[in-house]
Structures are given as structure tokens and as C-alpha cells.
């Protein structure tokens, strides 16, 4: 097993109290697996991604453990975590467009970063050039400043840069969100290719766009209000979701071939609960058509079929 997260809790400190953005999540990502995380805004997917590599100053590790390749990651200790970053866990940030220092040439920046990890630039250069070519970039992007590149090019440079030291786990946060469809496809394909070439062992791809996940991910994890709702192979999530929230989420997507003149594209009624003081029991209860008395008690996240886990009392 590559990544194993156990009962992870991460809270945001605010003046009104702790926001329980991640409230006890347990899952595993296997070697070579690309796991997609889906869910609406505020469900905790970005928090989960950040928790695995670098907590920001407002975030507090409130419990639970993260183990990568059998070794426990000291996620709450910024200094100790530094040793694991980049070499073992790496990140493609939400803001790839502005992720590079505007006043440094890209090659120079990579050199500085590698030097900080005691890696000689000259040793890595042939591999770096090979990977740039692989994503369709000319090697003289290294002599350019980030402003001289288009958004799609920057995204690909960041992809190559983030995976240069062959990390065990790559976290891609909204990797394709700011791109047009053709760049989206190129980046999605590059992600899968990088995994297939063994540049990254496993990957977590966070997005609100389920159609992208369907292209990229082997498995999809659906989150709702800081809890896990369902995890299953991508095909299963799309075709036979079990959790009522997943069903409604998938149902809210338009389908090719359907005409929306007569029928209405359905959304999900209501809003997710406040995570400042979340209700006990199943968090989807208030919006769930299947809710019943038992839902006042939190449903366990358990396996209902091979590789298919669901947290819902109505499914078993």
C-alpha cells in the first residue's frame, strides 16, 4: 500500500471557533492508483490535499495519522515534514499559473530548488529535458521567464517540475480547472502518462469536475462536508453509485445525447451544513431523500463490494 490515511482530522482556527473541515477520514491509495477526489465547494477536498503535504498557518492537525509507504508522515511538524516534501510527496497547486517566481528564469528557479534538496542540476538536466519534451515543451523554456509562457505551458512546466524527483505521491489540486478543454485533455493525458512511466507512484487528483476525473482516475472518492461519502472505481461511481449524495451529484451532470428542452437538469436542494458546529450523525441527512431515524447516528464507511466503500445506512 502506498498511502494510508487513518481518522485524519484537520481544523481551521477562526475567531468563532474551529471549522472542522476534515473530520475523521480514513482511506488508502494503492501503488499506481490515481484516486480522484470529488465533492462540492467546502467539502474538505482541498484541505485533505494540503494536509498531506503542507498545512497552512490557519490549519490545525486535530488527530489521525498519515502513512506513506509504511512511514508515518509528521504532517503537523513543518520542519520535519520538509524532508518528505518533493522527494516523497509533491504537489501541483491550484494556482499553477502563478506558481513560479516571476523574476527568475525557470531553469534558474529549478536549479535553486534542487540545490535546496542537495541535488545537482546538471545531474537531473537530461531527465528534465526528456520530460519537458514528453509534455510537448521545448527545452528552451528553461531559459524563459514564466510570463513568457502561456497558461497551458506553465501548467505543464509545473507538472514536470513537481514530479522531477519521482515522488511516491503527487497531489494535483484542481489541475485542470483554469484550462480550456483542449489543454485540459493534454494535462489529463500527461498525468496518466507520468504515472505509467513511473515518474509518480500514486496520485490524488482533486477537482470539482467529475468528467475530468472520469478520464484520469482509477478510483473516485466522494466527500461531503468533511466526511467521506463513497469510494469506488471510477466506472462504478459514474454508472452505479450507491450513496444518495453521489447519485444526486452524478444526476446533476448533463449527459451527451439527452435533450434538456423538456426535462429539467436537476440540482441538489439545500446547502451543506456549517462545519463550525456540524450536526451529529450523517451530514447529508438534511438533504437526503432516504433519511430516516438511524441517520442521527454517523454511518460507518464500510466496504459493500470489492473496492467499493460507502457511508450510508440505507446501503448495505
Amino acid at each position: 500500500m502506498s498511502l494510508s490515511v487513518t481518522d485524519l482530522r484537520v481544523h481551521y482556527r477562526t475567531l468563532r471557533g474551529d471549522v472542522k473541515a476534515l473530520d475523521g477520514v480514513t482511506f488508502e491509495v494503492a501503488d499506481g492508483e490515481i484516486m480522484g477526489i470529488a465533492g462540492e465547494s467546502g467539502c474538505g477536498k482541498t484541505t485533505l490535499g494540503k494536509a498531506l503535504i503542507r498545512l497552512d498557518t490557519r490549519m490545525k492537525h486535530a488527530g489521525g495519522t498519515v502513512a506513506l509507504d509504511g512511514e508515518k508522515l509528521p504532517i503537523a511538524d513543518d520542519g520535519a515534514m520538509r524532508r518528505h516534501r518533493y522527494r516523497e510527496v509533491s504537489l501541483i497547486p491550484q494556482y499553477a499559473m502563478s506558481a513560479m517566481n516571476p523574476t527568475r528564469k525557470i531553469g534558474r528557479m529549478i536549479r535553486d530548488l534542487l540545490a535546496a534538496h542537495n541535488v545537482r542540476y546538471a545531474d537531473v538536466l537530461p531527465e528534465l529535458e526528456r520530460r519537458l519534451k514528453l509534455v510537448g515543451l521545448d527545452i528552451d523554456v528553461l531559459k524563459r521567464y514564466p510570463i513568457e509562457l502561456s497558461g497551458g505551458m506553465k501548467q505543464r512546466v509545473v507538472l514536470v517540475l513537481s514530479t522531477l524527483l519521482n515522488p511516491s505521491l503527487l497531489i494535483g489540486d484542481e489541475v485542470t480547472s483554469a484550462l480550456d478543454v483542449s489543454s485540459q485533455k493534454a494535462v489529463a493525458r500527461a498525468l496518466v502518462e507520468f504515472r505509467d512511466h513511473g515518474f509518480v507512484r500514486s496520485m490524488i487528483v482533486i477537482t470539482h469536475d467529475i468528467s475530468v476525473l472520469f478520464q484520469v482516475a482509477d478510483t473516485i472518492l466522494v466527500m461531503y462536508a468533511g466526511h467521506l461519502a463513497e469510494k469506488a472505481p471510477a466506472r462504478t461511481i459514474i454508472d452505479e453509485p450507491l450513496h444518495p449524495y453521489t447519485k444526486m451529484l452524478i444526476g446533476a451532470l448533463p449527459k451527451v445525447g439527452d435533450r434538456y428542452e423538456e426535462q429539467q437538469l436537476e440540482g441538489i436542494e439545500g446547502r451543506p451544513p456549517s462545519l463550525l458546529d456540524p450536526p451529529a450523525g450523517c451530514r447529508f441527512r438534511a438533504r437526503c431523500p432516504l433519511a430516516h431515524d438511524r441517520c442521527a447516528e454517523a454511518p460507518p464507511f464500510r466496504e459493500v463490494a470489492e473496492g467499493h466503500q460507502v457511508a450510508c445506512w440505507a446501503v448495505s
Binding site: R87, A99, L113
Partner: peptide, 24 residues
């Protein structure tokens, strides 16, 4: 800024991040 966050996430030491920040 974003580039400082990205560098930190990739394990760059504070010294490098500050050096970039100072220059900018």
C-alpha cells in the same frame, strides 16, 4: 504569494523563499 507557497510545499528552505521574496 503563490510562488512562495509552492516553493514551501516543494520543501524549499525558508532561506530560499525569503531570498526570492526580498528580491521581488
Amino acid at each position: 504569494s503563490d510562488y512562495a507557497n509552492y516553493l514551501s510545499a516543494l520543501g524549499a528552505p525558508k532561506r530560499l523563499v525569503r531570498q526570492y521574496a526580498f528580491r521581488n
